[in-house]
Design a protein around this nucleic acid. Structure first.
Lengths: 176, 176
DNA sequence: CACAAGTTTCAATAATTATTGAAACTTGTG
DNA sequence: CACAAGTTTCAATAATTATTGAAACTTGTG
């Protein structure tokens, strides 16, 4: 029952599958496959990797690796690791999944929700004939969407700020 | 202060802006712009529209309109309306935003979460050398992600099944 | 069952988005 | 300050995804 190295898949193969899976998942929620794959690679690498390492392992170009790494730094999903006497930069992934979740929520909220809220607010501010039933129906739809957006926003903000204890304690207990 | 028809933007223009906004938002969370726009058009149309109406108003081809409408029916975001003595089909949008939210959560969960869970479960089941620290680190990452996926899954399922009263009552009060 | 009034499918094409790779840039060191 | 060892930028291109539009299909009716 106890799996041994000889009976198991080589670890490298398992990691490669994980990278593939994470890449597909990433693509399905709208980030580039490469971004997700670089993130996955760093998540399963105990040691920090250089740009060169990333290029080699994922077979991507230097430019792509550079841009992707920069974007992941932006999201807060990976960190630079500087080594004395080394010119190259190394990168490690944030491994705490609560932290990772926060970063992802923050980025997606910004991209998907905040922008929409701004547009809706502008739209709702437009004047119109309040006596026209068609206009009122239109505004009712707008108001409903705005309310939903506001609630989602508050909910996500709260989730992001959640302490580990609050998150796992109150929140999970509420839902499980 | 009370806006009148003459001072306001024509309603059609406001609707066009809403359709544009909803299209952009849709694209940012990974559905096609057209899908989001057809949905928006039907959301702000008090009357049911035919395929022809949709084609005209959004300037899209018959094929595109047909596919898109079918997909929206699939999501549960719009309904067919049959009129006696009419060959054409008409479509109306679900206007209750709680219902709309449920449909969107269901579709996104299926696309983004369920597929990922399946892949992770497969991956976690692979045998390996439990004594190897690298292997254990890899499995720890996997287990963390699985836990997160499971919690998210339960949370979203609960949200989807929520009664209007539960949703607006308990849930919003918790977060606002 | 032939036809009219529609809908659906899908191969070709257009539009969009991601990736490459070479040139420009940066930075630390002898 | 020249050079080595890197990183970043960005125009060109490749890959992907969405859209068209014409042909095939469906369905109700005289």
């Amino acid at each position: 029952m106890n799996p041994t190295n000889s009976s198991g898949l080589p670890l490298a193969e398992a990691k490669a599958r994980f990278i593939h899976t994470w890449g597909v998942s990433g693509a399905s929620w709208g980030v580039s496959k490469t971004l997700a794959q670089v993130h996955a690679l760093l998540l399963v690498s105990p040691a920090a990797l250089s740009t060169e390492d990333i290029m080699d392992q994922l077979k991507i170009s230097r430019g792509n690796a550079s841009m992707t790494v920069r974007e992941l730094l932006d999201w807060g999903l990976i960190y630079k690791e500087l080594r004395p006497g080394e010119r190259r930069e190394f990168f490690v992934a944030e491994k705490d999944m609560l932290q990772v979740t926060r970063c992802i929520i923050r980025a997606r909220k910004r991209r998907e929700l905040d922008q929409m809220k701004r547009s809706l607010d502008q739209l709702a501010a437009l004047p119109g004939d309040a006596a026209d039933p068609e206009y009122r129906a239109f505004h009712a739809v707008l108001a409903d969407i705005q309310q939903l957006a506001t609630v989602s926003d508050k909910m996500l903000t709260r989730l992001m700020q959640a302490e580990k204890s609050w998150f796992w304690d109150k929140f999970i207990k509420l839902f499980m």
